[in-house]
Design a protein around this nucleic acid. Sequence first.
DNA 1: TCTTTGTTTTAACAATATCTTAACATTTAT
DNA 2: ATAAATGTTAAGATATTGTTAAAACAAAGA
Lengths: 231, 231
Amino acid sequence: MTGKKVLVVDDDAKTVELVKLYLNRDGYRVITAGDGNEALRLARENSPDLIVLDLMLPGISGLEICRILRDESDVPIIILTALTTDDDRLKGLDLGADDYVTKPFSPRELAARVRAVLRRLPGERGPEKIQHGGLIVDFLKHEAFLEGKPLNLTPIEFKLLGALVKEPGRVFSRAQIIDKALGHDFNGFDRTIDVHILKLRRKLEPDPHHPRYLKTVYGAGYKLLENTGET
Amino acid sequence: MTGKKVLVVDDDAKTVELVKLYLNRDGYRVITAGDGNEALRLARENSPDLIVLDLMLPGISGLEICRILRDESDVPIIILTALTTDDDRLKGLDLGADDYVTKPFSPRELAARVRAVLRRLPGERGPEKIQHGGLIVDFLKHEAFLEGKPLNLTPIEFKLLGALVKEPGRVFSRAQIIDKALGHDFNGFDRTIDVHILKLRRKLEPDPHHPRYLKTVYGAGYKLLENTGET
DNA sequence: TCTTTGTTTTAACAATATCTTAACATTTAT
DNA sequence: ATAAATGTTAAGATATTGTTAAAACAAAGA
């Protein structure tokens, strides 16, 4: 399931269930929290892709949570609030919320906003093309070349090579590779990386058994050689 | 400071401050106006690189200002509006606005749109006609041709092809296609794009099962091939 | 207004492509 | 030599995309 993870925070169980129902229907994975502390804990443990946050919470206030979360990550936040004065709205947006919905709300509308925010945010940054020796990785075109010849990479192979080529010479542990290339929501086995490396080598090494680009560092991980020249 | 100059026009001081805060954070120099006359004056005196313009203004209306500014220069304009009927939105874009954001809005999103508009700035207003290999897309006449033969495209198909042909070779995710071709108020499913792609292929590919123009990039999205040549 | 017509969206299923895992083989360091 | 780490293989599990048809929607004309 490709579904993004959404954390829904509200002290009213009925509201939570309703929202969950609609978001599930849209293919999102939903985790829920009923108070501020739980919300913070779940946010930290699960690194959701988006948070729907009620402002009126027992314990820590929603605004406070919003502020804390904003400090810790860039996760998009949609505020749920019964308060309707401009003041409160702006306070929320000022704290970095991405949208807000006032109670009483239509779950359909909330679902639409969730979709909209998730669609918009994955934004820019990072170079769009890297050349390293005879290797070219073009992120915009989603193509990679070696000595002018196109490499036919699968999504993961592409991401993996992309991560390595951003810091040639640096050794990446399997865990780091998973982090940089596959994202936090990957939950698989370390050694899966080995297989992807193997496949990559087959595609870009002249002699896969004696890698010239993609070196193994025994006990540490893998690296892309910085000096692209000969042995 | 290399920062581009942005003029923000809104009668609500809080909104102005909020926007200013976010734009400053992005390294832009921000000047502000609270009504239409001031906006026109500042625009003429400071020739900003971009204008964020609220439609609801005391004095001259935002639409009127948009029209006047458009007559006087090519400065990009992003419209801020609480109006949500299609009519008003289209009126704005008709007058030459480059993008619009509906209130209530997320300052983060606005900032992102400012970046987006300024990024494609040197590329001005976009050509009114693009030829790419045997493909011609005429935005003025709203017509497209392949090898001289007219393609009978529906509105969405036309927009979709138009978005792709502006950057041949570049891969667009479904979300990006939605943003570029359908507008950010589209509230539909990602996979709707697949169907439009399918229909497009049927109209412009000699053999839709082996696309020569409209390629799928597994796990990433779709692209228009840059080299339009033979097999 | 009510049809009619064409378009867009969605849901379901089929066809592919890719990923993960587990098992076993090989290499490396000590 | 042996234990630990990495290489390799291949099959089952997952994910992604292609395709179809019907429902929802919108535009245009009677």
